[in-house]
């Protein structure tokens, strides 16, 4: 019973409110005196036909795919690395978690300083090593800004992937590896025939959660670039924010928010289905 109240109050209410908002002519005035009339799907229509949308969708796709591929890949390698016991492995593993533990705003501000073209550490190191001769405009070049944001988000996401995958690796019975060794399987063979199949449910969870977390990534982008320059790092999440609190067009912002929620929902449902299928097998 308390669980139901909790869910209704803290999950259902905001979601329902957001959906209602997206169906109304929610300008500031309408919102303030509660006179916003229902306009059906017109906010969705406006948002979908908005000339900025294709750019935003493309950016979001690149951001999500780029982030997940590298977060997952590097996270998996680190997880394998730390599943071997060696001196100080526990300490190092905890240190690697730091990016994930820091508040996004703090990370964003520090990275902003690091990526500053003239005084930032990144350009300083690159030019000291002799790799570059003119400073790279990490955040103000429209071709580079998205890459910079993705790099930052990969760095933040690695610990999360590593942590879950490491947990999964710990649960693999040692006997399986021993049996594989007895059968004469090499390292690669053991990885693909023992580790990956046993890990499949964990991998699925990591990918689904990673997708949802990356889709809704917001703080790091808003601090680093605010979606700019010229919308080159505008994602669905930052765009919804700009529409709502920049343009004060709460209806359109809510429409984008609802669309994002549906995408996440579809992804989560697909995962639950495949998980059930897994259990039945």
């Amino acid at each position: 019973m308390p669980a139901i109240v909790y869910v209704c109050l803290l999950f259902a209410y905001p979601i329902v409110y957001n959906v209602l908002l997206s169906l109304r002519q929610s300008s500031v005035i309408g919102l303030l005196n509660n006179s916003a009339g229902f306009v059906g799907l017109s906010n969705y229509h406006t948002a979908i036909t908005n000339p900025v949308l294709p750019t935003v969708v493309e950016n979001t796709a690149l951001f999500v795919v780029g982030s997940i591929v590298f977060q997952f890949g590097i996270g998996f390698l680190l997880a394998l690395f730390f599943s071997q016991r060696f001196p100080l492995s526990g300490l190092l593993r905890s240190l690697i978690l730091v990016p994930w533990l820091l508040p996004g705003v703090v990370t964003g501000l520090v990275l902003r300083l690091m990526f500053d073209p003239t005084s930032g550490m990144v350009n300083q190191i690159l030019s000291d090593v002799g790799l570059i001769h003119t400073p790279i405009e990490w955040l103000t070049n429209t071709h580079l800004a998205l890459l910079t944001v993705v790099l930052a988000n990969i760095w933040i996401g690695i610990p999360f992937n590593m942590l879950l995958l490491h947990g999964g690796l710990q649960d693999i019975p040692k006997e399986l590896y021993e049996a594989a060794r007895v059968d004469g399987a090499g390292r690669a063979r053991t990885f693909w025939s023992v580790t990956v199949p046993v890990m499949r449910p964990v991998i699925a969870v990591v990918l689904v959660l990673g997708f949802i977390y990356t889709l809704k990534a917001f703080d790091i982008v808003i601090i680093l670039t605010g979606g700019g320059p010229v919308n080159s790092t505008q994602l669905l999440s930052t765009w919804a924010y700009t529409l709502s609190f920049g343009n004060l067009d709460f209806g359109q912002g809510a429409a984008i928010g609802t669309i994002m929620m549906l995408i996440s929902l579809v992804c989560a449902l697909a995962y639950v289905r495949s998980y059930r299928g897994e259990l039945r097998r």
Partner: peptide, 16 residues
């Protein structure tokens, strides 16, 4: 507010 956002983007596009 919406005009401001649009105009701000145009300013950036031209400077860059």
């Amino acid at each position: 507010p919406a005009i401001e956002t649009a105009l701000g983007t145009a300013v950036q596009a031209v400077i860059l």
